[in-house]
Write a protein that binds this DNA or RNA. Structure first.
Lengths: 96, 96
DNA sequence: CCCGCTTATGCGCAAATGCGCATTAAGGAG
DNA sequence: CTCCTTAATGCGCATTTGCGCATAAGCGGG
Protein backbone atom coordinates (compact mmCIF):
# COMPACT_ATOMS: atom_id res chain seq x y z
CA UNK A 1 0.00 0.00 0.00
CA UNK A 2 2.58 2.57 1.12
CA UNK A 3 4.93 0.99 -1.38
CA UNK A 4 2.39 1.48 -4.13
CA UNK A 5 2.05 5.12 -3.15
CA UNK A 6 5.79 5.64 -3.09
CA UNK A 7 6.31 4.03 -6.50
CA UNK A 8 3.48 6.11 -7.88
CA UNK A 9 5.18 9.28 -6.64
CA UNK A 10 8.66 8.23 -7.76
CA UNK A 11 8.21 9.35 -11.34
CA UNK A 12 8.57 12.95 -12.53
CA UNK A 13 5.40 13.20 -14.61
CA UNK A 14 3.26 11.62 -11.93
CA UNK A 15 4.75 13.80 -9.24
CA UNK A 16 4.04 16.75 -11.49
CA UNK A 17 0.42 15.72 -11.71
CA UNK A 18 0.15 15.55 -7.96
CA UNK A 19 1.73 18.98 -7.68
CA UNK A 20 -0.77 20.39 -10.15
CA UNK A 21 -3.73 18.72 -8.47
CA UNK A 22 -2.55 19.97 -5.10
CA UNK A 23 -4.49 23.18 -5.66
CA UNK A 24 -7.52 21.09 -4.76
CA UNK A 25 -9.45 21.64 -7.96
CA UNK A 26 -10.22 19.44 -10.91
CA UNK A 27 -8.07 19.16 -14.02
CA UNK A 28 -8.67 17.23 -17.22
CA UNK A 29 -5.97 15.20 -18.89
CA UNK A 30 -5.91 17.53 -21.88
CA UNK A 31 -4.93 20.33 -19.52
CA UNK A 32 -2.21 18.34 -17.75
CA UNK A 33 -0.63 17.05 -20.95
CA UNK A 34 0.91 20.28 -22.24
CA UNK A 35 1.84 21.46 -18.75
CA UNK A 36 3.83 18.29 -18.12
CA UNK A 37 4.99 17.86 -21.69
CA UNK A 38 3.54 14.38 -22.00
CA UNK A 39 1.83 12.59 -24.84
CA UNK A 40 -1.74 11.43 -24.50
CA UNK A 41 -1.11 7.73 -23.96
CA UNK A 42 1.67 8.44 -21.51
CA UNK A 43 -0.57 10.73 -19.48
CA UNK A 44 -3.41 8.26 -19.53
CA UNK A 45 -1.27 5.44 -18.20
CA UNK A 46 0.34 7.59 -15.53
CA UNK A 47 -3.11 8.65 -14.38
CA UNK A 48 -4.04 5.00 -14.15
CA UNK A 49 -1.10 4.38 -11.85
CA UNK A 50 -2.09 7.29 -9.64
CA UNK A 51 -5.67 6.07 -9.57
CA UNK A 52 -4.66 2.54 -8.62
CA UNK A 53 -2.49 3.94 -5.86
CA UNK A 54 -5.56 5.70 -4.53
CA UNK A 55 -4.03 9.13 -4.92
CA UNK A 56 -6.49 10.56 -7.42
CA UNK A 57 -10.07 10.03 -8.48
CA UNK A 58 -11.61 10.72 -11.84
CA UNK A 59 -15.00 11.88 -12.95
CA UNK A 60 -16.48 11.77 -16.40
CA UNK A 61 -17.74 15.18 -17.55
CA UNK A 62 -19.01 15.06 -21.12
CA UNK A 63 -16.06 14.11 -23.29
CA UNK A 64 -13.57 15.03 -20.61
CA UNK A 65 -12.30 13.13 -17.63
CA UNK A 66 -11.61 15.39 -14.67
CA UNK A 67 -9.08 14.34 -12.10
CA UNK A 68 -8.59 15.56 -8.58
CA UNK A 69 -6.77 14.38 -5.47
CA UNK A 70 -8.67 11.58 -3.81
CA UNK A 71 -10.73 13.29 -1.10
CA UNK A 72 -10.90 10.03 0.86
CA UNK A 73 -7.17 9.61 1.00
CA UNK A 74 -5.93 8.35 4.36
CA UNK A 75 -4.46 11.14 6.49
CA UNK A 76 -1.09 9.34 6.71
CA UNK A 77 -0.87 9.25 2.93
CA UNK A 78 -1.92 12.86 2.71
CA UNK A 79 0.91 13.66 5.08
CA UNK A 80 3.40 11.90 2.82
CA UNK A 81 2.20 13.90 -0.17
CA UNK A 82 2.44 17.11 1.77
CA UNK A 83 6.01 16.35 2.82
CA UNK A 84 6.97 15.34 -0.70
CA UNK A 85 5.52 18.47 -2.26
CA UNK A 86 7.24 20.69 0.26
CA UNK A 87 10.51 18.96 -0.41
CA UNK A 88 10.18 19.28 -4.17
CA UNK A 89 9.28 22.96 -3.88
CA UNK A 90 12.39 23.56 -1.83
CA UNK A 91 14.48 21.74 -4.32
CA UNK A 92 13.06 23.56 -7.31
CA UNK A 93 13.95 26.79 -5.57
CA UNK A 94 17.45 25.51 -4.94
CA UNK A 95 17.82 24.52 -8.60
CA UNK A 96 16.62 27.90 -9.85
CA UNK B 1 16.79 14.31 -5.84
CA UNK B 2 13.35 13.85 -4.31
CA UNK B 3 12.67 11.32 -7.04
CA UNK B 4 15.79 9.42 -6.07
CA UNK B 5 14.66 9.39 -2.47
CA UNK B 6 11.18 8.20 -3.38
CA UNK B 7 12.47 5.39 -5.59
CA UNK B 8 14.86 4.37 -2.86
CA UNK B 9 11.98 4.11 -0.40
CA UNK B 10 9.64 2.37 -2.82
CA UNK B 11 11.03 -1.10 -2.19
CA UNK B 12 10.09 -3.29 0.76
CA UNK B 13 13.58 -4.33 1.83
CA UNK B 14 14.95 -0.81 1.62
CA UNK B 15 12.00 0.61 3.47
CA UNK B 16 12.59 -2.06 6.08
CA UNK B 17 16.18 -0.92 6.44
CA UNK B 18 15.06 2.63 7.00
CA UNK B 19 12.56 1.49 9.59
CA UNK B 20 15.27 -0.44 11.42
CA UNK B 21 17.74 2.44 11.26
CA UNK B 22 15.08 4.82 12.49
CA UNK B 23 16.07 3.97 16.06
CA UNK B 24 19.01 6.27 15.42
CA UNK B 25 21.74 3.75 16.13
CA UNK B 26 24.16 1.90 13.92
CA UNK B 27 23.51 -1.50 12.38
CA UNK B 28 25.80 -3.71 10.33
CA UNK B 29 24.63 -5.46 7.19
CA UNK B 30 25.01 -8.85 8.85
CA UNK B 31 22.44 -7.77 11.40
CA UNK B 32 19.97 -6.40 8.86
CA UNK B 33 20.15 -9.44 6.59
CA UNK B 34 18.32 -11.95 8.77
CA UNK B 35 15.86 -9.37 10.04
CA UNK B 36 14.80 -8.50 6.52
CA UNK B 37 15.22 -12.00 5.13
CA UNK B 38 17.63 -10.88 2.45
CA UNK B 39 20.74 -12.46 0.99
CA UNK B 40 24.09 -10.78 1.30
CA UNK B 41 24.40 -9.45 -2.23
CA UNK B 42 20.83 -8.21 -2.23
CA UNK B 43 21.39 -6.33 1.02
CA UNK B 44 24.63 -4.86 -0.19
CA UNK B 45 23.06 -3.50 -3.35
CA UNK B 46 20.05 -2.12 -1.56
CA UNK B 47 22.34 -0.36 0.87
CA UNK B 48 24.15 1.15 -2.07
CA UNK B 49 20.88 2.58 -3.38
CA UNK B 50 20.09 4.06 0.01
CA UNK B 51 23.58 5.52 0.23
CA UNK B 52 23.37 7.07 -3.22
CA UNK B 53 20.01 8.58 -2.30
CA UNK B 54 21.72 10.22 0.66
CA UNK B 55 19.51 8.44 3.16
CA UNK B 56 22.18 6.47 4.99
CA UNK B 57 25.89 6.70 5.66
CA UNK B 58 28.30 3.87 6.33
CA UNK B 59 31.35 3.54 8.46
CA UNK B 60 33.96 0.82 8.38
CA UNK B 61 34.46 -0.82 11.78
CA UNK B 62 36.94 -3.69 11.62
CA UNK B 63 35.43 -6.28 9.28
CA UNK B 64 31.97 -4.80 9.60
CA UNK B 65 30.33 -1.88 7.85
CA UNK B 66 27.98 -0.01 10.13
CA UNK B 67 25.11 1.89 8.63
CA UNK B 68 23.00 4.64 10.13
CA UNK B 69 20.60 7.27 8.88
CA UNK B 70 22.47 10.13 7.30
CA UNK B 71 22.77 12.72 10.07
CA UNK B 72 23.14 15.48 7.46
CA UNK B 73 19.91 14.64 5.70
CA UNK B 74 17.92 17.71 4.65
CA UNK B 75 15.01 18.43 7.00
CA UNK B 76 12.49 18.14 4.13
CA UNK B 77 13.74 14.65 3.35
CA UNK B 78 13.69 13.76 7.02
CA UNK B 79 10.08 14.86 7.08
CA UNK B 80 9.23 12.56 4.17
CA UNK B 81 10.82 9.63 5.96
CA UNK B 82 8.95 10.42 9.12
CA UNK B 83 5.63 10.54 7.27
CA UNK B 84 6.39 7.33 5.41
CA UNK B 85 7.35 5.45 8.57
CA UNK B 86 4.25 6.63 10.37
CA UNK B 87 2.11 5.54 7.45
CA UNK B 88 3.70 2.12 7.28
CA UNK B 89 3.31 1.63 11.01
CA UNK B 90 -0.36 2.43 10.76
CA UNK B 91 -0.75 0.03 7.93
CA UNK B 92 1.08 -2.79 9.65
CA UNK B 93 -1.29 -2.36 12.56
CA UNK B 94 -4.25 -2.47 10.20
CA UNK B 95 -2.90 -5.63 8.57
CA UNK B 96 -2.30 -7.35 11.90
C1' DC C 1 -25.62 8.41 -39.17
C1' DC C 2 -20.86 10.48 -39.52
C1' DC C 3 -17.39 13.39 -37.60
C1' DG C 4 -14.42 15.49 -34.16
C1' DC C 5 -12.62 15.70 -29.62
C1' DT C 6 -10.95 13.36 -25.49
C1' DT C 7 -9.38 9.39 -23.15
C1' DA C 8 -8.23 4.37 -22.69
C1' DT C 9 -5.91 0.28 -24.25
C1' DG C 10 -3.59 -3.67 -27.01
C1' DC C 11 0.83 -4.51 -28.75
C1' DG C 12 5.69 -4.64 -29.26
C1' DC C 13 10.06 -2.94 -27.86
C1' DA C 14 13.90 -0.80 -25.27
C1' DA C 15 15.64 0.27 -20.93
C1' DA C 16 15.76 -0.25 -16.05
C1' DT C 17 15.41 -3.04 -11.93
C1' DG C 18 16.11 -6.84 -8.97
C1' DC C 19 18.09 -11.04 -8.20
C1' DG C 20 21.41 -15.23 -7.64
C1' DC C 21 25.82 -17.00 -8.29
C1' DA C 22 30.52 -16.65 -8.09
C1' DT C 23 34.41 -13.85 -7.21
C1' DT C 24 36.93 -10.19 -5.12
C1' DA C 25 38.23 -7.14 -1.46
C1' DA C 26 39.01 -5.71 3.30
C1' DG C 27 39.89 -6.71 7.83
C1' DG C 28 41.16 -9.59 12.14
C1' DA C 29 43.08 -13.86 14.35
C1' DG C 30 46.34 -17.51 14.64
C1' DC D 1 51.40 -16.20 5.44
C1' DT D 2 46.72 -18.68 5.66
C1' DC D 3 42.04 -18.91 7.18
C1' DC D 4 37.69 -16.96 8.48
C1' DT D 5 34.20 -13.41 8.49
C1' DT D 6 31.95 -9.50 6.45
C1' DA D 7 30.82 -6.78 2.60
C1' DA D 8 31.12 -5.30 -2.41
C1' DT D 9 30.91 -6.29 -7.30
C1' DG D 10 31.03 -8.46 -12.19
C1' DC D 11 28.02 -11.14 -14.87
C1' DG D 12 23.97 -13.01 -16.85
C1' DC D 13 19.06 -13.50 -16.62
C1' DA D 14 14.09 -12.74 -15.75
C1' DT D 15 10.79 -9.38 -14.66
C1' DT D 16 9.04 -4.85 -14.62
C1' DT D 17 8.52 -0.27 -16.32
C1' DG D 18 7.92 3.25 -19.58
C1' DC D 19 7.10 4.50 -24.02
C1' DG D 20 5.18 5.17 -29.01
C1' DC D 21 2.09 3.72 -32.29
C1' DA D 22 -2.21 2.44 -33.70
C1' DT D 23 -6.79 1.46 -32.50
C1' DA D 24 -10.89 1.44 -29.76
C1' DA D 25 -14.22 3.59 -26.77
C1' DG D 26 -17.07 7.39 -24.84
C1' DC D 27 -19.30 11.63 -25.66
C1' DG D 28 -21.40 15.69 -28.11
C1' DG D 29 -22.71 18.19 -32.45
C1' DG D 30 -24.46 18.55 -37.04
Amino acid sequence: MILTVLSALAEPTRLGVIALLADGSEHCVCELMPKLDATQSRMSRHMQVLRQAGLVVDRRDAQWVRYRLNPDMAPEIRQIIKAVLEASEKHERAAA
